[in-house]
Amino acid sequence: MAQTERFSNLPEYAFPRLRALLSGIQPGGEPVVMTIGEPRHPIPDFVAPIMADCIALFGKYPPNEGSAAMLEAICGWMSRRHGLEVVPDHITSLNGTREGLFNAALALCPQQKNGAQPVILIPNPFYQVYAVAAAAVGAEPVFVPATAETGFLPDFTALDEAVLKRTAIAYICSPANPQGSIADEDYLERLIHLADRHDFLVFADECYSEIYRDTPPPGALAVASRMGLSDRVVMFNSLSKRSNLPGLRSGFAAGGRTAIAQIRRLRSYAGAPLPLPAQAVSAAAWADETHVQTNRELYHRKYAVADRVLGNVPGYQGPAGGFFLWLPVEDGEDAARTLWRDAGIQVLPGAYLSREVGGQNPGKGYIRVALVADAEETEQALNRLKETIYD
């Protein structure tokens, strides 16, 4: 396949599609945007002073893999959060997880798997960079339904052996975007055993891992390490959701030494290292849990609001983690237009986060609603939403 053709079958990105869908429609109320997963809670108090103290470091080239202080802070967090004793050369810094989730496929996907075109397994619905990564490396994307019937997680174990034989990488997001489902330890163990049996890597997207109701979601790398199979997993996380710092563009990947070395090698040619002042802020953020707990409590209030307002809606399922509602509707595009026209509420049709397979799009009957505003604004908006499309 020619390089210019690799991306020809990718649908337009979700937000331009939404703008086109709502074009010419006047909002039927004070506009409330509940589409994008951009946290609006306060950033930690220590960010500005650290940035100011380190301002002169913008005059230096930063280390590509991350400063010693930042890598040590991440190692410390991995130990406290996951019980993992990770050394710095098993970690690399990233410009947010999106860069890493894409570049890791470039660095680690083989040109062939068992003499054939490699397969990359992708949950459906999914974070769209997974499909773009598959296209970039010339792999065949296999979209695995993550529906109510499967607990809103992909059942990779149900795939045909011929597909698994060609599989090079499987993406998994937990808590899931958009459904908020969490892969428990049993699920992760089954997936890691499958990866070991069929010789593929698991890319664990855990950027929502610190936003949850009660029990911290297990980490795939921690599970794999207990199984003696840590080389099977590359995990990704960032400060965007955990610390309300999406603009800092600070994330990391962690995994086996060989995998991380390959990702670091690619980044040394094609990556953009995180500026040193941002790395200093990152080190402080990974070392502190107080602001994370405060942040989580704010989401707990909104979980309670959503449960109270929407709890009697047929098919409603409050998220176990993350900050999205995955709400059942007859048709996501129709619901999005109606909400904007009649209530001034902007939501994302679920079909824009999914791919049609076999004539079915698993997101068509849903809308994604981001709980990023404060609890009062969220409650007002959800009441308007309910009155408009459910009552």
Results as ranks from 00 to 15, higher is better:
L298A: 12
A287E: 04
A272W: 10
A285F: 01
A287M: 04
A287N: 10
R267W: 09
T290H: 09
K302L: 08
A259P: 03
Q262A: 15
A284Q: 05
N295M: 06
E289I: 02
R296L: 13
Q262W: 04
R264S: 14
R267L: 15
T258R: 09
A272Y: 09
L274T: 14
R296P: 03
T294Y: 08
A272Q: 14
H300S: 08
R257H: 10
A259M: 07
H300D: 05
L274D: 00
A287I: 05
Q262V: 03
E289L: 07
I263H: 03
T290Q: 13
P273V: 07
Q293T: 08
P273H: 05
P273K: 06
A278Q: 10
N295D: 11
P275E: 03
I260C: 12
A272L: 15
R265N: 11
R264E: 06
A280Q: 08
Q293G: 05
A284S: 11
A280N: 02
D288W: 00
Y269C: 12
A280S: 11
A285L: 08
T290L: 09
H300V: 10
R257C: 04
A285R: 01
W286K: 01
N295E: 09
R267Q: 15
R257D: 06
Y269N: 11
R301F: 00
V281Y: 03
L266Y: 13
A270E: 14
Q262I: 01
V281T: 08
G271F: 02
T294Q: 13
R264I: 02
P277L: 04
D288P: 00
Q293W: 02
L276V: 07
E297A: 15
